[in-house]
Structure formats: C-alpha cells, structure tokens
C-alpha cells in the first residue's frame, strides 16, 4: 500500500504537513500521517521523537503550529470547547502513565466515563464495567484502589476505561510496556478484537517491534520530527533503507539518533 492509496482510502484521522514545537524546539516538522478507518496503524520511533505529542495533537490537547489535523472530517484546531468535547466522547485514549483517578477504585475508574456521559441505570453500568474488566483480566481487582495496582495492571485498567464508551477511535500509548509475555499476548488479541468486532479505528504508539509487526495493518516510523519510513509490516521487513532496517532490527549503530541533540561528546567532556 502506498501513501497515495492511503490518502484515497478514507482516513478517519489525517495530519497534513503538521509542525509542532515546544517553545522553539521543533518536535514535529511537516509530517503527513493518515489513519484509515477500521485499521490498526502504528507509530513507532525512538523515545522522545514526538509520538505522544502526535496523539495529543489528534485529541486537540495541543494545537499544531502549522498544518491541519482532521478527525472524522472535522478540523480539530478549529473546534470550540463544546465541539472538541463532543468529538472526544467518541475517542478513547489509553495514557502512557495510566492516569487513573487516584481517589476512585478500579470499578469507579472504568465507570467514570459511563456516569459522566450516559444515563444508564446502575445495574447496566455494573454489567458494562465488569465486562470491560473481564476483558483485561482484572474483574477480580475491581475494588482495589489505583495505588494498590502494579504498573502493568494500572495500564490495563486504563485500557478498560478507554473503551468503556465504545469509541470510534482508540489510541493506545505504549500498551505493551511493562506487561509480562502472557499479558502482552492477551492485550494484543484484545486490541485486534476490539478493532475488528466494533469496527474501530486504532492508533498504536509502541516500541515493541515484534508485537507491532504482528498486529499492525500499517506502520509509520518517525524520527527527529519526520516520517522516515512507512508501509505494511511485510513491506518494512523487506525494506533496504538503512533507517528502517536499524529500527526494525533494533541495531545499535545506524542513522537514527539515540541521543537528545547535544554538543559534541568529546568537546563536552573536555569543556
């Protein structure tokens, strides 16, 4: 699949020529990203290249310095507060840190979006919450407080909470990090099932090459603010670009930078 066919295939989310910086330091520099409906699209790239930032641009928590971000045909940065909230009710996001509400137990965390946005009776809320928790294997933990969860468990609760309202678009920020191999398999299966059964569009941010290659329909690799590679997992495996090969195989040396921009190392030590 080429970029051309992706653009014409209907994209639920699209970023066109988007640039963004935090106070002078450019994080994204004119990137084009398209996320087709019904597919799982992954963004990968070194730590600190702006993957989380990209998700925050899509959700309208940040506004691009240049370029447009469109979700379901609406330009995100043009929406007012109410419009943005309407859109967000249809998006689910699993935060990298979990971001569970510390004063609510696991059950109430998952119930939170349901209570905020629906008038479902208590018995129905209970059923939905328990179903979502069962899917992430934590139904038994429903009365624990977030402080009593391990990092991996917290992230799975965050996943259950993010899908509570059955959104049209799911974003997962590093869903596999900190999970044991068995759970990784379960979470992958869950992401796939949610995507296919509910007709979701999924955006995944991850470093875990093996998992990405198994689960994604399409992959973008970004580094230093630019898209340096894209394609289906099979295409990327076959690619002979040194950037992509370095990334896919996890080679230590190569063109992609591991370091945050810094002055010359030797000069710095001798200074």
């Amino acid at each position: 699949m080429t970029t051309q066919s992706l653009e014409t295939a209907e994209a639920l989310v699209e970023l066109r020529q988007v640039s963004f910086g935090f106070g002078g330091r450019k994080v994204l520099d004119g990137v084009d990203l398209f996320f087709p409906r019904g597919k799982i699209t992954t963004i990968m790239g070194p730590s600190g290249t702006g993957k989380t930032t990209t998700l925050r641009l899509i959700t309208g928590q940040l506004r691009p310095d240049a370029g447009v971000v469109r979700v379901a045909g609406q330009e995100v940065s043009a929406l007012d507060h109410a419009g943005l909230f309407r859109l967000r009710k249809r998006m689910g996001m699993m935060f990298q840190s979990g971001a569970l509400f510390a004063d609510l137990d696991v059950f109430e965390n998952v119930a939170f979006p349901l209570r905020a946005h629906t008038d479902l009776p208590e018995s129905m809320i209970r059923d939905v919450v328990l179903m979502k928790l069962e899917a992430v294997g934590l139904r038994g933990a429903s009365r624990l407080m977030p402080a009593a969860l391990s990092a991996g468990m917290a992230r799975r609760v965050a996943l259950a909470r993010a899908v509570a309202l059955d959104p049209m678009l799911m974003m997962y920020d590093e869903p596999f990090t900190g999970q044991d191999p068995i759970t990784v398999g379960r979470v992958m299966k869950l992401i796939r099932e949610l995507n296919d059964n509910l007709g979701l569009t999924s955006i995944l941010v991850s470093h875990d090459v093996k998992e990405i290659m198994a689960i994604s329909d399409f992959v973008y690799i970004i580094s230093q603010g630019r898209v340096i590679g894209q394609g289906s997992p099979a295409q990327l495996q076959r690619s002979d670009s040194p950037w992509i090969r370095q990334f896919i195989r996890g080679e230590r040396e190569g063109p992609a930078a591991f370091h945050y921009p810094a002055p010359d190392y030797v000069e710095d030590l001798l200074a």
Binding site: F85, R88, A116, H117
Partner: peptide, 18 residues
Amino acid sequence: GLMKVTEQLPAMEMMAVD
C-alpha cells in the same frame, strides 16, 4: 497539582469531562 502531574486532569479532559 498531583492530579496534574499524574495526568489525571488531561485524562479527564480526554473523556470530555471538564
């Protein structure tokens, strides 16, 4: 402040709760 540090406030905004 801690709700901000632990991303609880952004998460709330993401769930369209003010």
